[in-house]
Amino acid sequence: MVTAGDPRLVQIVALSLRVSLSAAFIASAIGLPLGALIAVTPFRGRRAVIVILNALMGLPPVVVGLLVYLLLSRAGPLGAFGILFTPAAMVVAQVILIAPIVTALARQIVADGWEEYREQLQSLGATRARLVATLLWDLRHSLFTVLLAGFGRAAAEVGAVMIVGGNIDGVTRVMTTAIALETSKGDLPLALALGLILIVIVLALNAGAYAVKETAQRRYG
């Protein structure tokens, strides 16, 4: 089934990747600069913000799904957009789920780097915006792992996409929701095939990231 490229399977895998990669991309666009900014800016209540961020990393997907469902449902505040039960709604839910993860991990990595770079960059007179950009770029190899962590969490989660997507065949069915459904229906071959693909994708991404990091470390120190 996997090797034959069953069109049903291909569609599900493609949607999964599309949704989770979009979510990881958007969450990174928000989380990387935000995490870096928190790391280099001393302000009152920073500790509290860090504790909250770390706590948000453990947000239960079903709760996020429920909240996004309420926001996007026809009677909800964002109901006018009419995106409930579409891939867009799934992306929204996953962004909310993984943006705190990306932000919190990025903050930690940038804070560690900041220790080393602080005096040098202050001496050069870099503005805060430039500090953020410089640190994000200089720590890019470590931060790439953060991106992967975000993507991994998005690709593996089932609760939020199930609630806001609705697991509609051909429209919002992704790997995790399909596995849940097929298993409960007793169609174990499809469930297993999807499970296998999911694991392979996550493994391949992590192996790739590791290789990139190793090479970069050797080349740039």
């Binding site: 040098q120 890019r140 120190g221």
Partner: peptide, 10 residues
């Protein structure tokens, strides 16, 4: 300023 241990960008 030049520091005891130089901090180089990657």
């Amino acid at each position: 300023m030049v520091f005891q241990r130089p901090v180089m960008l990657r």
